[in-house]
Amino acid sequence: MASQLVAGNSAVVVGALYAGCDCFFGYPITPASEILHEASRYFPKLGRKFVQAESEEAAINMVYGAATAGHRVLAASSGPGMSLKQEGITYIAGAELPCVIVDICRAGPGLGNIGPEQSDYNQACKGGGHGCYNNIVLAPGSVQEMCDFATRSFELAFKYRNPVVVLADGVLGHMVEPLQFPEVAVQPTIDTTWAVAGRAETRGNLVTSISLNFDDLERHNYRLQEKYQRIKENEVLWEGYKLEDADVVLVSYGISSRIARSAVDAARKEGIKAGLFRPITLFPFPEKEIRQLADRGCKFISVEMSNGQMREDIRLASGCKPVELVCRYGGNLINIDQTMEKIREVA
């Protein structure tokens, strides 16, 4: 298996191309721009389609268009750009189109700065645009996963005809780690039962999110909610580290989970039975598993670079048990010392 040292943002493009992604539409924004650069370099080499759009709104609507035509399509952005994309994403969710959007989260609110944060959690996991909908949200924790989750994301996007957000951050985007290249190159096909591709077979099809009749739209919403329920039942992913005998459970995703993992090791050295629970899907959130840990009497600490956005989900899943928070803002990373302090306090 070929391996190279690769940055997270490059790994996204590698993964997408092996996953049969045909189109990329983007707009520059730090710290996601390398995805755009790499896409501009590699997509055309394979005759695949790349456009630097005039804005994130245009980019997400180009995504809407290529997805309408049944193709595998990728977009990538960060904070301010993700906010602009929300209009397009709710239309994509409403029209039930598949696509993958990578969010290399930066610090906010507003223009904030280009340092890492995980403050787009709510925007990604709770809808983000208007109306009742959910994205499927995957949170990679390594360069390898930045690549591997592309394949998984496209599978989920097409299985459920739903937008998938890969929620990463500036550290994961820029850090370099060994990457084992994918072994399989996906050969995508177009599902002519729903796509509108300018072909005879798809002429009778319609992609829309409008439904004037109240009862029709209510039925559509019920159907969407049933779909999200199926996703919750079937697609939860998580990873545990030293959970078996843990009294204190750090819950953490993405780059913070790496720091939390180091903190677990440090705590174990001090004789504290700490463990790490890493949600890999943030929607669907691993509710049952958190509940089991809560029932076992575990104490929770949410380790996230945001104001406890994920903590709310842990609290709900645990049956409203208290959940402590370790956080940093503004581009600063959580450090091990700070996490250790909280672990000692809770243990």
């Binding site: 995504v63 268009g65 035509a69 399509v73 509108v196 992609v207």
Partner: peptide, 23 residues
Amino acid sequence: DSGNVQAAHGRAPAIATGISRAE
């Protein structure tokens, strides 16, 4: 009587770009 897609307000040319580049 053709393939049909409905757009967000003002975004038709971007959607068109996506379709046209893909197909």
